[in-house]
Design a protein around this nucleic acid. Structure first.
Lengths: 238, 238
DNA sequence: GAGTGGTCTAGACCACATA
DNA sequence: ATGTGGTCTAGACCACTCG
């Protein structure tokens, strides 16, 4: 049980907010009170509170206190840096993943650029659809550098690749650059999505980096546009 | 000249990175070296570096050092919490704002919900189009609580409302919740956008909050879908 | 004036990386 | 063994809010 103090405090307060122990639009105990009740230094309490503020749980107001915010934080299909599995679990949605292909390829020009690799590097290619409420809504094209992921199987892709990467391979996913735009639907989209009559898809391009800042994954998530929704919480840059 | 130390250090390093004084994929001086050269405590240096990491400028690696990241951070039309003016200025794009309407209204049901007001609260309604390279690409519908913004004019709306709010009125914009989805184009869209044949628009709904966590603005930015692009940098939640 | 959060310090110990 | 970033402490002073 060796968790950082400030993280433990953060998690405890998150839980208290989500359970309603700390109610929306009320004040959290003051920093000094938290210092007393947790028996830590003030900076440690402040670290936990800063994290809460960054993630949209509270708003700190000088001279007044920390207020619990009324953001519904768990209603977004794509945001921050969370996997499909994590998101659907939080929403409590019934969903299925269909794996069409798990293969080794050598990258074409487009992929060489997006994954920053050469044509000699072998790459995992994974094609999956996500079914929600009986409809194939999302079509994911994943590409992984085999340097980091030596083994991959259909079974792993049906569950959560992220779980496998973080827990089995013990790689640390650190940050991502996400790009959202709209493209005309391709033949592939028509095959792997229940596209209906929609002539466009929303494309989320995701560049995922490890701990040491190496790019190890490029993903294109292609969404049926009527089902696409992205929610973001952002603080104003200082 | 009373700027926080850690902010001053942050800004100095940002500038050094953007100017190329600190080159991409190289190491920043270590924390101890920065402590020495800035003559501050280590925690203050760390505060500046943490901000740099959060904003995607550097990656900190335990035992190694802080590396300058190779994200092109200034190529996004909509991200974080920045105004249209700020974004186009950073991109160096020629753009024009056309103001169609600046008026006082009382909110309908939809607005009452989105701005969290009653039908007795008077609201500023602002309709604007954004022209880039000669085409009306974005149609902005802004609604402001008059409680916070007593006066508004066409001139202000043609420049930057945010500048006015922050510098003249001295209100502090703190955070926002952003929602992105796709909707069918309305008659209004056809009037205020050079829509071409596109039957859909990308809608960015923006809920903007002040310092004290009060909701003071609701904006709907309606984008022609072929010109829409959103880039986001996100770190994995701890 | 008392209470709140914001900044800053000087020092300690730890975990990790590198040679 | 040394250098790096990560966590934590105890205490100080400041700016802001509110009665």
């Amino acid at each position: 049980m060796k968790e950082n103090k400030f993280l433990a405090i953060y998690n405890e307060i998150v839980q208290a907010i989500e359970e309603g122990t700390y109610k929306r639009n009320t004040k959290l105990p003051s920093e000094n009170e938290l210092v007393a009740s947790y028996g830590t230094s003030r900076e440690t309490i402040r670290k936990a509170l800063t994290l809460l503020a960054q993630n949209g749980y509270i708003q700190k107001v000088k001279g007044k206190g920390s207020f619990v915010l009324d953001m519904k934080r768990f209603d977004f299909p794509v945001s921050g840096l969370t996997s499909f599995k994590e998101v659907t679990e939080k929403m409590g949605k019934a969903s299925t993943t269909i794996v069409y292909e798990v293969s080794t390829i050598y990258p074409d020009e487009y992929l060489q650029q997006h994954l920053q690799v050469t044509k000699k590097d072998s790459i995992w290619k994974v094609y999956r659809s996500r079914k929600i409420d009986g409809e194939k809504i999302i079509f994911d094209k994943d590409y992984f550098h085999q340097k980091y992921i030596p083994y991959l199987s259909k079974e792993i892709c049906e569950h959560s690749i992220y779980d496998y990467i973080e827990q089995e391979l013990n790689l640390k996913i650190s940050f991502a650059k996400k790009e959202i735009l709209v493209e005309e639907a391709t033949k592939e989209d028509q095959i792997y999505l229940d596209l209906k009559e929609y002539p466009y898809v929303v494309v989320v391009k995701n560049f995922v980096y490890l701990d040491d800042a190496s790019l190890f994954q490029y993903t294109e998530s292609r969404h049926r546009l009527d089902k696409f929704r992205f929610v973001d919480f952002a603080r104003r840059a200082r």
